[in-house]
Amino acid sequence: MATDFTLNGKPASFDGDPETPLLYVLRDHLGLTGTKYGCGIAQCGACTVHLDGKNRRSCVTPVSMVSGRQVTTIEGVAGKEAEAVHNAWVAIDVPQCGFCQSGQVMSAIGLLRIKKKPSDSDIDAAMAGNICRCATYVRIRQAIHDAAHALEA
């Protein structure tokens, strides 16, 4: 039986093993490769998407779990927080290799939707599950602060 859900605002469907994690449905079947595989065990955050608007690791989310729900990926994320985060990220050249950054950006947007003006410790807490092997953390922190300032203005 197919799993139907909303993906980036449009109807989507997956007709396969309902245990298949959303990550692989997105990447291998629906062609949305912005969401990345980094560990497969919810340790690194590279696979972060929004499920009903909240941060969710797609590598440990069986597609059956998203039936009837709203999935947003890096390709479809929008709104003022998304715009602010994108601009802040680019303005200070956060990415290096870039492979983790979709997940970082999604986590940061998810944070800013809840906390308008996150402190350093709010950022530490929210971003604790997103590994960046290039260690772009100094700039991730700065970009989140910059995005929060831009949202305030």
């Binding site: 909240k54 906390k115 604790a128």
Partner: peptide, 9 residues
């Protein structure tokens, strides 16, 4: 915490 809730994983 905001952005990394139990439900994130």
């Amino acid at each position: 915490m905001a952005g990394l809730e139990c439900g994130t994983c």
